[in-house]
Structures are given as C-alpha cells and as structure tokens.
Design a protein around this nucleic acid. Sequence first.
DNA 1: GGCACTTGTTACAT
DNA 2: TCTCAACAAGTGCC
Length: 320
Amino acid sequence: MGIQGLLPFLKKIHKAVNISQFKGCTVAIDAYCWLHRGAFACADKLALGEKTDMYVYYCMKYVDYMLKCGIKPILVFDGCHLPSKKEVEKSRRERRDLNRKKAAEFLREGRRAEARDCLQKCIDITPQMALELMNVCRDRGVDCIVAPYEADAQLAYLNKSGIAQVIITEDSDLLLFGCKQVMFKMDFHGNGILIEQNDINQVLEIQQGFYTFDKFRHLCILSGCDYLASLPGIGLATACKVFKKTRLTDIRILLKKLSSYLKKNVVVSNEYIENFIKAENTFLYQLCYDPIKRQVVPLNDYPPEIVKDELKYAGSYPFI
DNA sequence: GGCACTTGTTACAT
DNA sequence: TCTCAACAAGTGCC
C-alpha cells in the first residue's frame, strides 16, 4: 500500500515527537489504521461471528489519550471505493476468502494455531464496525467525517485548509496528497515520527530553485503507487535520479525521454503516459467534504485546461 | 555496491 | 453481504 519504501527513503527527515507537543491543535486521524490494529486482537472472534467490541475500545484508548493532552481529534473514515480500484478490491476479497477456507480446514484438523494465523490474514473492517466506532465517538462529542471517497484525500483536505494542523496515519500516500505535517507510528504513549512537507527536498536534493512539490509527486507515481504500477526495475531511488537530472516540467515530455535519462531501454507506452496523468489527477482532484462550507469539493481547484474525461475514473469529477 | 524485488515475521491481547 | 498491512532480511540483477 502507498508508496513502496517511501518512509525509509525519507528517514533523514524523520523527527521523533510526542503527540502532547500538539496541545491546543486539531489532529485528523486515519481511523482505519486504528480499527485494523484493534481488530487484530480479536481476529478469531470476528471471523467466527462472535460479538465483540474490543476494537472500538482499542481506538477509544487513543482518542481518550488525545483528549487528555488537550488535543481536538477528528476521526476520518473511507467512503465509496474509487472506480479505478475495482480490480484491487476484487483480489483482496479473493485473498481473504482463501484464508478463510484454509482456516476452516485447519480447524477441522484441530490445528488451532495455524487456523488463528489464517483468521488474522482475513480480517476485514466492515462499515458496521466503523459505524460502531463513530457512534461511541459522537456520544463522547468527538467529530467524525466519512469521506466521499478515500480517507487519504479527505485528511489532506483538512490539513491543507487549516482545519487540522497534523494528520495521524500509517499510509505514506498522505504526503503525496499534499499534507504539511504527518505523524506515523504513534503508540499508546503518544510517541511517533513526524514528517514535514517542507523538509522533503533535503532528501531528494534537487537543485535549489528547481524543486517543486509537483516533482516529488511525479517521482513517487513513477516509482509505483496504488493507482499505477511501476515500470519494471524502477523504484524510488531510480525515479529520484531522473528528477535530479532534468529541468523539464512537462511530465509527458519527460516520460517520453525516460530511456535517455536512465541510460537503458525502458518502454513507455502512450497508455502508460495517459494512466500516469489519471493517477496524478486522483492525487490532485479527488473529491472531499468541506465541513465549513458543507459541500463536496475537489482536493485542489481544477485548473482551466483540465480534461473532464481524465477525471472520470479517478473519483475526482462530480456528478458521474 | 546500489538497487529492485521476494519472502518470512510481526502485529493484538490474555 | 460487509474497507487498505508493514518491515526486515535475503536474493539476484545491473
């Protein structure tokens, strides 16, 4: 998930922080991360359909800690699946089904430890489980937002618009969506690591005056992301080299010249280039909910030259 | 040696 | 019928 290896790649700019440093701030949280960890503890009960709300109280432990620190938490949940992710969803479901069948097999043979192992691999967070957490939060006066599409874009919107000063997640994609401050790996003591957008070029080392955030987004997409698989043999380090060499800003032209930058033959089809643009549009214009205006808006304003057709598959064009 | 990619382990809690 | 895994170590390529 996210960008393969992005967090270790940015190690140089990791800052050890404690959430209590953000006293007085509003912090938006990728609720799925906590739900998933909480569900892990009761994977067997969930898989066997036994009643449990352990995952809700796991999440509330974090919420209560933040309230105690004088922080205002906002929990953000995923909404609709992106049309472009249909195939991914299908393969995940198939993998879960397979593990569920294997678990049943192990149980019949009395091999309980192996069965539990498989049950943990087929954890899925249902909308029902998310709803239970939302209900407990709302009873406690804690705000929750369900994103029109992915929570990632919604979290970025809250951060960019100044509603939330910090984002808590485990997904490196949040940096690509344009968050200013993202905290990863937060534990029960509130300890975690902070990555700030302003520090990114300390790692990329693109020549002063030529670095833009667009280049960071481009090199991440090129290295492979959720919306577009990488070209064979290209990861973060190789993608970064390309953007250090060139001053081209037109990504279509840059991609066509990829072979000359890499000094090896890479096939860049027109289809790949079009899919690259669609992937980027998903990072730029995915639909979000503005809780102040009370309406659905794109993460960033549409530029005048945008081609509506390119947005259709990206959950970024309204009224489709 | 640096890099991309594969594989095995851990996560949770009692 | 129901929402996303991440990391370290090891391998093999250029």
